[in-house]
Computed example of a mutant assay.
Amino acid sequence: MPQTDSDDATQVTSPAWPGWRIATATCIRFYSRLPVPALPGENPHALPDFRLVPRALPFAALVIALPAALIALLAGLAGVNALLTAALAVTALVVTTGAFHEDGLADSADGLFGGHTPERRLEIMKDSRVGTFGALALGLSLLLRVSALAAILQGAGAWTVAAAVLVAAPWSRVEGIRILATTPPTRRDGASAAVGQPEHSVLPIAYGLSGVLALLLVAAGALPLAGIVLGLAVSALTTLWLSRTAIRLIGGQTGDILGAAQQLSEIAIYLGLAIVIGWGGR
């Protein structure tokens, strides 16, 4: 049957792949406060097109996490107190990202658990003020991340805690992309809807690159395999729970939910590693 003009009009045009350099720069710029110069052929002020760009998110996440990993490594090698070293590393993560993901976690906690209807929950999530649930979520997130990293440092040393930061950074952000790709946006005019839904090839590539990094660090002896497996498994379950909870309570995902997914995943990976190392699984 011949194709009509109306058929052409309804076809969705596949985006052009911008290249790994531009895609990585776009992700760094979107997910952090790090200064990234404009590259030839890109518009740094345009809204990112996340239909293909998150393929490069693991590379961007490594750049974003590198200052925190270096701080953890140097402080750990210098014999700085484990709790202080972990606090410095988490502080570096917060500063580098401009509390981008922490803001999403706080707004998600306030909205999901502070309202009684989907409309009210979404209204709370748009409010810039932090409520009780948001403050508790932020406090617990910081406490769990610092405590887990301190336990990793005490149990396995500076190289392992730096490796933990580098592994968690890409995987946790790809978990947010997983929700973006598999859960409908609750607001058609929201940020998560505006950036576009990732294509089918994005998640396998992004997860694959993140997994390869984890395996390389395991092979180098920096991380225990059992800890990685446990951390990633808990991360996957946490993301699944968050996605289903968001669908049930607000009808889909928002940008805040994606930020919350990153935070919960990062905590899960640190906890998995800390538990296994605490058991002597070095």
Rank of each mutant, 00 (worst) to 15 (best):
A162N: 04
Y207W: 09
M125F: 12
T182P: 01
A222N: 04
G190A: 13
A222E: 11
S192G: 13
G196F: 12
G196S: 11
W171F: 14
T183K: 06
L203C: 03
A148E: 02
R120D: 15
G131Q: 08
A181K: 08
P184Q: 12
L180D: 01
S201C: 09
V212S: 01
S210C: 01
A214M: 13
D127S: 12
R178S: 10
R178N: 07
L166R: 06
V161F: 05
L217A: 11
R178K: 13
R178C: 08
L153W: 01
A164N: 04
V174H: 01
P224L: 11
A150Q: 01
A163M: 07
E175N: 14
A148K: 01
T186K: 10
L213K: 00
G157I: 07
T186V: 15
A162G: 04
R187Q: 15
G231T: 04
S210L: 02
A156R: 14
V218R: 04
I179A: 10
A150F: 03
A137Q: 05
Q197H: 08
S128M: 08
R121Y: 12
G139E: 04
G221E: 06
V167D: 02
S147M: 03
A169R: 09
G196T: 12
L122M: 15
E199V: 00
S128V: 06
T182C: 08
I152R: 02
E123F: 09
S201A: 13
V229D: 05
R188W: 05
P118Q: 15
A162I: 07
V202Y: 01
H200E: 09
Q197E: 13
L138E: 05
W159H: 12
G131W: 09
V202G: 03
G190E: 10
E123A: 14
S201F: 03
A156K: 03
A151K: 00
P198T: 05
L223W: 04
A151Y: 01
G211P: 00
G208H: 02
W159V: 13
A137N: 07
A219G: 03
A226K: 11
G176S: 14
R187M: 15
I124C: 08
W159I: 09
T160K: 05
A150D: 05
V161R: 02
A169T: 08
M125N: 13
L149F: 13
A222V: 06
I205P: 01
A169F: 07
E199T: 06
L153T: 03
L180H: 10
G134K: 03
S141V: 01
A164I: 07
A164F: 09
G134M: 09
L153D: 04
T183N: 09
I152F: 05
R173M: 09
V212P: 01
S210I: 00
A156L: 10
G157Q: 09
T160C: 13
P204F: 03
I228Y: 02
A194K: 15
H200Y: 03
A151H: 01
L166M: 14
T132H: 05
L203N: 02
E199Y: 10
I228C: 14
V229L: 15
L215I: 11
A135T: 14
S201P: 00
L209M: 03
L203I: 08
A206Y: 00
P198N: 05
A222W: 14
